[in-house]
Nucleic acid binder design. Structure first.
Length: 594
RNA sequence: GUACCUGUAGCUCAGUUGGAUAGAGCGUCUGGCUACGGACCAGAAGGCCGGGGGUUCGAAUCCCUCCAGGUACGCCA
């Protein structure tokens, strides 16, 4: 918000106290006081080293005489202002271009930003946890872009490793030559079934093993992996894969392709897109040379057993193996390699990883190593750690089948949205019913995930499902559809060429709505600066709520005179544009009717 | 054991560069349709902001401590 009187007040301070100029902030006046906006005098009191109450008196006196202000009232250290409607509208929404332009960051602050998210494994379909990652990743990228940054969305698919070999092995043994077409199943689901099948067989063998060897009785099953026949076979398969065994590679290629095809469909439903997808099978050896070079430069050292390690000065980080004693890479080594690759290929000013908060330590280690290696950009790396999605029964586990599957969830949600839409349109089934069901259900789901702070752990109750009423995506969509409907009607019935006159908008609800609109640019800035979609989601709810209040109090199409009607239509149209802009920034679509 | 995260209304969550009487939604209870679209609006009830101490004119917010829940600390990824 930027009002004329703020600049005037700043000048007043300069003259009155012979001081440097400092910014004058305003906020919305709380509902329990009368006024449109409030000036808090605590910041001035600090800057000027004066009594805040006394300052409030002076500020009140100055502003009461200001031509834009109808009434100024000092309450303790606050000055509550009622603005003249014409001035309020002039400084908030009368000029939509200004609103649009000010939501972009200044040129000097815009960066090239690379954001990596999703990063699925190719042994199973995606579940609600991945949906949160994808949604947060896409929305964050989109928010950064909206604020003026240049953004590159990157996926790094974990397409190799023991977990994939498990699915492959189970397929060889129990698959009977099936494929997605024969099974009538999405490829990622089919491969996931074999992952679960592997685990069943593994657990059967573990039980058998424990029954026959009392010594194993209290060991946990991960420790006994190589004691089982099927575990050893999976290990052997991984070794064959690494040696490039043609048969294993062929099967790997085939099953991975099934999964990629399945993922493509899931991504399409969600509107997820990447500038580039890296495959771990092509990058996993990259970090090793850098480690060896670092070993020469004494960033790392070789332990007696041959492993290469780094010892951190920071005690909480301890020490970390970066090359195994057999010379192969570990997880963090691979990430060092891919980070450098991305840095070289995209030359970003900043890299962001959207990865679960359980990997905080990993990223601390990664960033600390890159810093130790002397890369100047190493302090421009951010781990955007988000919380898990848990079920009432606890954590989701793919191999135990206790997950909310992404595709199933999308389908259920779309069914609910379709029913609700039909319920509302009993007379005539809308031609675009499918489209509506898709947009509404995705809006509900994404909004639910985006309105909470990314770092909170979400509890998702499948029984309670996802609501379409109250604090939801559909509520915001509904405000948009209502305005659209109103504007359509206005276009049909408009017979006059009345001019908008902003001074006519004097109702509480009209002023509140205009003020809310004016808060949009700073909300975008905050969301981008803090990588937090939730403040934008909360803003859109407030905006939609303020619109609904206005809509119920102030008649638009049947307004008492043509100029008032025209002005209210203009106001509504601006609200509609902001809702659309905001929802699209959260990667949520809009509907003209619902 | 050490580090980090979380603890706010019955439930799900906002609110921290310290500022007015702590806010929404759901649920519960009252009202509002001769409708510019009821996926709505107006209102009520519901809180020692996990406990205790401290700093401050002022603390949900900062510091200390305790309690509860979660996560991480692999030559797994």
């Amino acid at each position: 918000m930027q009002f004329q009187f703020q600049a005037d007040l700043a000048r007043f301070f300069q003259e009155q106290f012979q001081c440097e100029s400092f910014p004058v902030a305003v906020e919305l006046c709380p509902a329990e006081f009368s006024g449109d906006v409030t000036v808090s005098c605590f910041p001035f009191a600090k800057a000027l080293r004066r009594n805040p109450m006394q300052l409030a008196g002076q500020v009140c006196e100055f502003l009461a005489a200001h031509p834009d202000i109808e009434k100024a009232e000092a309450v303790k250290a606050f000055v509550n202002l009622t603005l003249k409607p014409a001035a309020l509208m002039r400084d908030t929404i009368a000029d939509p271009d200004r609103l649009q332009a000010s939501s972009l960051l200044p040129e000097s602050e815009r960066q090239r930003i690379l954001i990596e998210f999703s990063a699925p494994n190719t042994n199973k379909p995606q579940h609600l946890g991945h949906v949160r990652n994808n949604t947060v990743g896409m929305a964050t990228a989109s928010i950064l872009e909206r604020a003026g940054h240049q953004v590159f969305r990157i996926n790094l698919v974990n397409d190799r490793g023991i977990h994939i070999c498990k699915s492959m092995l189970a397929y060889q043994r129990f698959g009977e030559g099936t494929n997605p077409e024969k099974a009538g199943k999405k490829g990622d689901h089919l491969v996931g079934d074999f992952y679960v099948r592997f685990d069943q067989e593994f657990r059967r063998q573990i039980a058998e093993l424990k029954a026959n060897n009392p010594a194993f009785a209290d060991k946990d099953s991960d420790e006994l992996f190589l004691e089982t026949e099927i575990g050893r076979s999976a290990q052997q398969m991984l070794q064959k894969w690494e040696q490039g065994d043609p048969e294993v590679r062929q099967l790997w290629q085939t099953m991975n392709q099934w999964v990629f095809d399945g993922f493509a469909e899931t991504y399409r439903s969600m509107g997820v897109q990447f500038e580039h997808t890296y495959l771990e099978s092509q990058t996993y050896t990259l970090g090793r040379d850098i480690i060896l070079k670092g070993l020469e430069n004494q960033v790392f050292k070789r332990r007696e057993d041959g492993a290469v390690i780094i010892e951190f000065e920071e005690p909480n980080l301890g020490s970390k193996v970066v090359l195994r004693s057999d010379g192969t890479s570990v997880y963090v080594t691979q990430d060092i390699g891919t980070t450098l690759l991305k840095q070289n290929e995209y030359q970003p000013d900043r890299q962001i990883w959207v990865v679960g908060d359980e990997q905080k330590y990993h990223f601390q280690v990664l960033f600390a190593i890159l810093k130790a290696l002397g890369y100047s950009w190493a302090d421009q790396l951010t781990h955007m750690a988000y919380g898990m999605v848990n079920l009432p029964s606890g954590k989701m586990k793919s191999r135990e089948g206790t997950v909310v599957d992404a595709d199933d969830l999308f389908e259920e949600m779309a069914n609910l949205a379709r029913e609700a839409t039909l319920q509302r349109n009993k007379d005539e089934v809308p031609a675009d019913l499918e489209q509506r069901a898709q947009v509404i259900s995705m809006a509900a789901l994404k909004f639910m995930l985006l309105k909470v702070n990314p770092k909170t752990t979400i509890l998702f109750d499948p029984q309670a499902s996802i609501k379409f009423e109250g604090d939801t995506g559909p509520y915001v969509l509904y405000a948009y559809a209502r305005i659209s409907s109103m504007l359509r009607k206005a276009a049909e019935t408009s017979k006059n060429n009345a001019q908008a006159d902003w001074g006519l908008l004097a109702d509480e609800a009209e002023k509140k709505l205009a003020l809310r609109c004016a808060l949009y640019p700073e909300t975008i800035h905050k969301a981008a600066r803090e990588l937090d979609s939730s403040c934008l989601a909360a803003y859109l709810l407030d905006l939609a709520k303020d619109f609904s209040t206005f809509y119920n109090r102030c008649s638009v199409l049947n307004a008492s005179d043509p100029a008032l009607r025209k002005t209210r239509l203009e106001l509504s149209a601006r609200v509609r544009n902001i809702i659309a802009d905001g929802l699209h920034t959260l990667t949520i679509g809009t509907l003209e009717s619902m």
